[in-house]
Design a binder for these strands. Structure first.
Length: 425
RNA sequence: GCGAUUAUGGUGAAGUGGUUAACACGGCGGAUUGUGGUUCCGUUACUCAAGGGUUCGAUUCCCUUUAGUCGCCCCA
């Protein structure tokens, strides 16, 4: 028996219905925000991720799926969406052909070679948004508002928005240096993970859970003190814009994000749900003003976020939210015997093409079992086709809710169903 | 990359070093050859993740592999 690769999953059943609903909801929300759907390849040249995500990050150093194609080109399955979107923006010279800002969204699978656990897979889906070419703090706020409103539309209650700023490049470097100076004398008092972080990414020490209560943490320099005026102003305006949008948030200096490209605003949306697992960050993002130029484009800024589909589904299920999923079939058609199957198929097709959701019996079930089947499918109507019906060009149609049965002319069936089903809505 | 834990049919599961691997649900068939969702009956695992070892004998004990679940790290 060949099994699916570790950390992947098949979609079917209830899960599949939820996913289709979420996709459709995001699509319609993005239409309203006027974001354009982009699709970029699932694999890219490895160099793109090395440069965009950062050569020292865990994501690039130990989590990518790399391969050589048949011409020995180094390829990587994308571990995140932003790099590809930026590449596309630059390669297609959208800074010349589109008017700014360029607002776009994407949806698709991402790949990271990690140990699977709750809310984490090796192939996972992200929905994300990028906005290129605007430095406006209002755009930061708009980007933050998208997942917030999306979760609201879905009906999630326990969500929490954390924001922070890393400042521009200059502020970020100054701060990093201050942190290093602060922790250096105490490095041996920190947990082993933090000692590792000290070398690789000192900013991450701030969100350590083990050392959280350590005095050294409490006295650590705050980003806010190392911001230059430009960075301060930007952050202030982002917060004002969030207030204007009526979005609740918490300024959390521990939010530093793991990918190298972030500058200024960074944010995470958490599932603040009882009994939810440890991978409770549903969405993360921020501004990345140096990224476009780093991959060979002009000095153009960007802001974006990505949300994890699997974690969203976890949250939906943890809160026991019933998505409005249509689980019914308009009509179930029962041919009494093999003789009537082809007639039934014709009728089934014609009803489907007229906009109804229709299923029929292909299994030559006994009538009894067919009625059971109709219930299982939540069929609103049952249409029985026998010798007599075909001879008289009439249909026996039963309303499965009221149990009333009608004999109607076959030419009238569409009007008949229309009346009932549209009246329902 | 590190650690914990699990692996029995379509599903949920019980069980034992040794003749037929419980039970429940579901599926299919019948009682009922054109009107059901109740009930009753029948049927549904030559096999206990895969491979190896110990043993007279293993689904049960040991090892390896694969996969699931959960945690660390990291991230969405």
């Amino acid at each position: 028996m060949i099994q699916k690769p570790k950390g992947t999953y098949d979609v079917y059943g209830q899960n599949s219905k939820q996913i289709l609903y979420i996709e459709q909801l995001m699509k319609s929300l993005m239409e309203k925000y006027n974001y354009e759907y982009f699709r970029t390849p699932v694999f890219e040249n490895s160099d793109l991720f090395n440069r965009a995500v950062g050569e020292t990050t865990d994501v690039v150093t130990k989590e990518t799926y790399d391969f050589l194609d048949r011409s020995e080109r180094k390829m990587t399955l994308r571990p995140e969406g932003t790099a590809g979107m930026c590449r596309s923006f630059v390669e297609n010279k959208m800074y010349g052909t589109y008017s700014m800002p360029v607002k776009c969204w994407y949806y698709g699978p991402m790949y990271r070679y990690e140990r699977p656990q709750s809310g984490r897979f090796r192939e996972f889906y992200q929905i994300g948004v990028e906005v290129f070419g605007s430095d406006s703090p209002n755009i930061d706020a708009e980007v933050i508002s998208i997942p917030v409103n999306f979760y609201k539309l879905i009906g999630l209650k326990g969500i929490k928005v954390n924001i922070n700023t890393l400042g521009d490049k200059e502020s970020r470097e100054n701060y990093k240096e201050a942190l290093i100076n602060h922790f250096k004398p105490h490095i041996n008092n920190l947990c082993s993970d933090c000692q590792e972080r000290f070398l690789k990414n000192p900013l991450r020490i701030l969100d350590c859970k083990i050392d959280a209560s350590n005095e050294i943490m409490k006295t650590a320099p705050k980003t806010i003190d190392y911001l230059n005026q430009v960075s301060k102003d930007h952050f202030t305006k982002v917060k004002e814009a969030l207030d204007a949008l009526d979005i609740d948030y918490i300024v959390n200096p521990g939010i530093v994000r793991g990918l190298d490209y972030y500058t200024h605003t960074v944010f995470e949306v958490e599932a603040d749900i009882k009994g939810f697992g440890s991978n409770n960050v549903l969405c993360g993002g921020g501004r990345y003003n140096g990224l476009i130029s780093a991959i060979g484009g002009p000095e153009i800024s960007g802001v974006g976020f990505a949300l994890g589909l699997e974690r969203l589904l976890n949250a939906i299920n943890a809160e026991a939210i019933e998505l409005p999923i249509n689980d019914t079939v308009n009509a179930y058609i029962i041919p009494m015997s093999e003789e009537e199957q082809s007639y039934a198929m014709g009728l089934t097709q014609s009803l489907r093409l007229n906009g109804f959701t229709v299923e029929m019996d292909y299994m030559s079930r006994k009538l009894t079992n067919n009625f059971k089947q109709a219930d299982k499918l939540n069929s609103e109507f049952i249409i029985i086709i026998g010798e007599e019906e075909i001879k008289n060009k009439t249909l026996t149609i039963k309303n499965n809710k009221t149990k009333e049965e009608y004999k109607i002319k076959e030419t009238e069936v569409i009007d008949f169903l229309d009346e009932f089903i549209k009246g329902d809505e």
